[in-house]
């Protein structure tokens, strides 16, 4: 079997960041492998351990330093990586990203493409489904569990839906977008890190993919990010300390007479 995982390198959203004149200040950011993508890599490796043969490749589009995210996936246990790197990617939205990935995958053989359900920086969650539509293959999002049936060439996906967990069977080839509720991604071992340095890291350019430069980046995008800002902070209200029954009567009074929600 052949799986690909689409990876993105994102700023660590747990850390503090600065916004100046409507722009995110990129210099002080710490970049990591998108957590949802790490779950997709982990789940592939669990399948790899359980199934006789699984060849796992990673693909990432983005800047030069994106190779650190790919190295992490290789150290976790993926076989090889493709780094689609081009200056023309600046300002890409989900649509432009899907154009690039479509061009990458159109002549590739694969059973499944896994990706994170969204990127932690943009929280958009469009690229996987868009790519599936472009490749004309079925997809399921927000997966929390996967079971591969090698003989039937299918995958049973458990996704978190509105009314509960939905189990859906997809025939290969297909795309599954993964939730971080699926697993706890492994931390690469020292041996894994050493081995990752010898694993193939294939460089791919926009020209290699036969894409015109206006199909990618800002001109390949359908939306434009105008500016960023910090949200209006909620003001901290009143804080009460004391004996439990006093606290309860105070709260009931406030909710009834002040907030008027009771």
């Amino acid at each position: 079997m052949k799986f690909f995982v689409c990876c993105k390198q994102v700023p660590d959203v747990a850390m503090a960041f600065q916004i100046k004149d409507g722009e995110l200040q990129k210099d002080d950011l710490n970049y990591v492998l998108n957590a949802y993508d790490a779950s997709a890599v982990e789940e592939s490796l669990v399948i790899k351990d359980a199934v006789s043969e699984l060849d796992l490749s990673l693909v990432l589009m983005g800047a030069e330093k994106g190779k650190e995210a790919l190295r992490k996936g290789l150290a976790m246990g993926a076989n090889d990586a493709f780094h689609i790197e081009d200056d023309a990617f600046e300002g890409s939205d989900s649509h432009a990203a899907a154009n690039v990935l479509e061009a990458f995958f159109k002549d590739k053989e694969y059973d499944a493409i896994l990706c994170g359900k969204q990127s932690q920086d943009m929280d958009m969650g469009l690229t996987g489904g868009l790519l599936a539509e472009k490749l004309n293959i079925p997809y399921v999002t927000n997966a929390v569990g996967l079971e591969v049936n090698e003989e039937a060439k299918s995958i049973l996906v458990t996704r978190q839906g509105d009314a509960g967990q939905e189990k859906v069977e997809l025939s290969f080839p297909c795309i599954v977008s993964c939730s971080n509720d699926m697993n706890e991604p492994r931390i690469p071992s020292l041996r894994g890190i050493m081995q990752s340095k010898k694993k193939p890291m294939n460089k791919v350019s926009v020209a290699d993919l036969g894409l015109a430069t206006d199909a990618v980046g800002k001109s390949g995008s359908k939306s434009t990010l105008l500016s960023m800002d910090f949200p209006k902070a909620r003001k901290a209200g009143e804080k009460f300390e004391g004996e439990a029954s006093e606290l309860v009567s105070t709260l009931i009074d406030k909710l009834t007479n002040e907030a008027k929600v009771l």
């Binding site: 959203v13 960041f17 995110l24 434009t224």
Partner: peptide
């Protein structure tokens, strides 16, 4: 729309 784990808000247009 919110982004960066809802720690920021962005303006976008199409």
């Amino acid at each position: 729309r919110p982004l960066m784990a809802a720690k920021a808000v962005s303006k976008m247009e199409s």
